[in-house]
Computed example of a mutant assay.
Amino acid sequence: MSGHKRFWKAVSVVSEDGLFQPRLDGRPIRLPQGHVLAVRSSALAEAIAGEWGQIAEGAAFTPDALPLTRMAGTMIERIAPDPQAAREMLLGFGVDDGLCYCADGAGPVAAQVFAWLSGYGIHPNVTDGLMPVAQPEDYTEALGRLLAGRDDLELAALGVLAQATGSLLLALAVVRRAVSLVDAVLWANNDENEQLATWGQDDELIRSMENREKDMLDADLFLTLGSKVSV
């Protein structure tokens, strides 16, 4: 979609075979591998249609303007055909999870996540150093069991959240509503906030923080809307 310009006049949503399709001038939106963009939630379909509708007539657009569309495409074409591969990819974040490296000790957000994880038999080792921390033998297995219960919608949101934060553990806590998105954003941007407090204004650093926060907000919105399945 990079370099494309708006060519459609009208955006709509159509219900077909139990799914909801955003359409451009009555035509389905085709994803890169040829699948039709169709989701189970009318609320999510309407929001995706809104992304396309807000592009100005004749304006150029890139995938960055369509975050919900991108996540839906990932869910449909990458995750749905092989969800186990998606879980194994996500597990890679948890093997050396950013939440386990806490310069100031566990910290309130990390402590909240670890308390929640303990209910699933997951007890990560934590370090305040820079060297890789070794995890208990049953850590990966227990984390895999927690991931096994996540559906395609959650896996798509987890992919964005884990990438943005560098932590699968934090992403899981956000998806399962064990930690608020506000607290997760504060934790994810903590290092940059400390740098700004020490060194002052840094526009590039601020943009990085804003982009991270937007990715996290988009993922949370995708999950929230996608969970509103119409019956």
Results as ranks from 00 to 15, higher is better:
54 Q>H: 01
30 R>M: 07
49 A>S: 08
36 V>F: 03
162 A>V: 06
62 T>S: 10
208 S>Q: 11
120 Y>I: 05
197 A>V: 14
226 G>Y: 00
56 A>R: 13
27 R>D: 07
44 L>N: 10
74 T>D: 06
213 E>I: 09
16 E>R: 10
54 Q>D: 01
11 V>N: 02
59 A>P: 06
219 A>S: 14
203 D>Q: 14
68 L>S: 03
16 E>I: 03
48 I>N: 02
172 L>S: 07
130 L>H: 08
84 Q>R: 15
210 E>F: 06
219 A>P: 11
88 E>A: 02
45 A>T: 01
61 F>P: 12
123 H>N: 06
185 V>P: 08
96 D>C: 05
187 W>K: 07
127 T>N: 08
210 E>C: 13
134 A>I: 05
108 P>N: 00
50 G>K: 06
129 G>N: 02
187 W>P: 01
40 R>E: 15
65 A>E: 05
185 V>S: 11
56 A>L: 12
97 D>H: 01
173 A>R: 07
134 A>C: 02
162 A>I: 03
229 V>E: 12
108 P>M: 04
33 Q>D: 02
33 Q>A: 09
52 W>F: 13
143 L>S: 04
167 S>M: 04
127 T>K: 03
73 G>N: 08
30 R>T: 04
169 L>H: 15
211 N>V: 09
100 C>W: 00
25 D>Y: 07
91 L>D: 11
120 Y>D: 11
126 V>I: 05
119 G>I: 03
155 L>H: 07
131 M>V: 05
225 L>G: 14
56 A>Y: 03
20 F>Q: 01
217 L>S: 02
190 N>D: 11
61 F>I: 07
91 L>W: 09
93 F>H: 14
53 G>M: 03
166 G>N: 11
178 A>Y: 03
52 W>G: 08
213 E>R: 15
153 L>E: 06
176 R>E: 08
152 D>I: 04
191 D>M: 06
108 P>E: 06
137 E>K: 14
34 G>V: 10
181 L>Y: 15
7 F>N: 15
189 N>K: 04
169 L>K: 14
79 I>K: 10
166 G>D: 12
36 V>W: 00
24 L>P: 08
169 L>R: 12
177 R>W: 12
123 H>Q: 05
